[in-house]
Design a binder for these strands. Sequence first.
DNA 1: ATCTATAGAAACGGCCCGTTTCGATTGATG
DNA 2: CATCAATCGAAACGGGCCGTTTCTATAGAT
Lengths: 200, 200
Amino acid sequence: MTGKTAAEARRTSIGAQRNPASQDAILQAAEEILVENGLGSFSIEAVARRAHAGKPTIYRWWPNRAILLLDVYHRQKYVDIAPDTGTIETDIFQLLSGLFEFWSAGHGGAVFRSVIAEAQTDPAACKAVAAYMADRYRQGGEIFRRAKARGDVADWVVPELAMEIITSFAWKRLLTDRLDMTPEELRLVVRHLVHGFEVT
Amino acid sequence: MTGKTAAEARRTSIGAQRNPASQDAILQAAEEILVENGLGSFSIEAVARRAHAGKPTIYRWWPNRAILLLDVYHRQKYVDIAPDTGTIETDIFQLLSGLFEFWSAGHGGAVFRSVIAEAQTDPAACKAVAAYMADRYRQGGEIFRRAKARGDVADWVVPELAMEIITSFAWKRLLTDRLDMTPEELRLVVRHLVHGFEVT
DNA sequence: ATCTATAGAAACGGCCCGTTTCGATTGATG
DNA sequence: CATCAATCGAAACGGGCCGTTTCTATAGAT
């Protein structure tokens, strides 16, 4: 027992097994760097410094930047992707509203932006993101399956594709730094999505 | 006159003015690197080597990576963003189809992906991309203004917003490397966009 | 003829890459 | 209880790119 605080104390091996304290410190340091200084300042060296960890420790468990980024992102716990409010329109409003709030209020937005950017460099990360999104569409498609059962949504609508269209808009707003939408603006977007453009 | 070919010949100053040959060589080298090896291999040093240019020459005219990338992108000439086929549905189909073709067949896709990724690191580049897109929406909104005049599109539809929703889908497909769509799949997407999800 | 801004080459200190080496730690094994 | 094995953080490696500075050569403008 030294006089150092927990943050200053040097972590060491706990035997021939992974040290959860190091794992946490590394992931948290990585998240902090992303949120405070962005992907530009994100490097394994910087994470190691901030976490008081050795570079080999990081490389041992996260073979590259992209995997570390994905791990940071998956720690962010996310809002309900399939709210059930009774109407398709308010379901989608709730979904987008929650997503925008999650991205702008907390750390989720900064982290996810970084993941998407990294995916443009790393093909494996790109596939991982695409697979993750496909899973999201499957989950969120529940909104449309319920709505179909109620008779509120047309038969030919493909739940997963509709979800992709909806979240695509959210992506673009995130990537162009335009998450600040009023409820009225967001309602207008939802109207375009739900009613389409045609005169009915 | 040396025995060297044009590619090998060393360019030099043409006086106290910018040398267009150097400018072209640099932009072309930058594009080639992006297309062949991706943003990961894109560095000022690499561009300078490939273009047989001095780094100071690059830094003099393009203060940073992002500006050079944007310049490369703007050289790519783009498809018609506002086709006029007579119906809103085929207009949008044409637009998306042309965009996907432009992105996957030529160099446009690889370059634009890189620009978007860079924008996640560089706030100035992010604003530039957002402004560029806003301009695109204004141009492409013409599709909806024409359709409104024909009475094919509802009054409450905001042309720019509708365009943003449409191109958002294209962005997501580009960024997740899923540009390979059959005409049938694309038609289905367009139907979701135009008709919306609701039963009519 | 002189001035001036350009061109490319080379080298600078600094940072990060991914890897290797090292001594210390501690659970698992026999 | 002694040994083994895998982990930990620290430090250092050669290599690459950063953005800048210094250099010589070039050729239009004055």
